[in-house]
Amino acid sequence: MNSHNKKTAGKLVVIAMLMFGFGFALVPLYSLVCDAFGINGRFLEIESGEFTAVEGERQGELLARRVDKDRTVNVQFFTTVNQNMDWKFKALDKSVKVHPGEITEVRFYAKNMTDKDVVAQAIPSLQPSQAIKYFTKMECFCFTQQTLRAGEGREMPLKFVVNPDLPKNIGTITLAYTFFDTGLKAKAEQKKNVALVNQ
């Protein structure tokens, strides 16, 4: 009887441990689903490696061949910094009117207000979510981590194209950027980023 109970308990412990693993398996599973459906703003090119700045450039050029001059889309920019982060961060162009297929460049400005070097990462969020896959970035300060020395300020570019296939009912796209402090130490050079841009 007793060994019978131990056997049952043993099997159940294995199930519990497998489910603990399953919790972690949800992480890559979630990325797979989001990438497959192009949802949840997962146009984060930083980690995936599949979509590089070079690839963005190439796709943008392709889209630029089919400029739709008859249509105008309003693109708005919105900026915030995460709590506990003392940076000034603003869009120098608050909003632009663009034709789908037209390559547009806008500028942002960030300034480190602290007396310490900070490595930060800008995370984009785009509304409405149906527009996410129709917004192609060719160059973005969000592709890499940004290091600002104490008191340093910098202008940063964003080059993008709105895909001419954008659903007709969408007239305004809002792009919000939030800067997060990565907590990393500023190095002389951000080697990882250099590698990524050169790919």
Binding site: L12, I15, A16, M17, M19, F20, F22, G23, F24, L26
Partner: peptide
């Protein structure tokens, strides 16, 4: 047994 380990995760 199925979900408490997921919470622990």
């Amino acid at each position: 047994i199925a979900v408490m380990p997921v919470l622990a995760g």
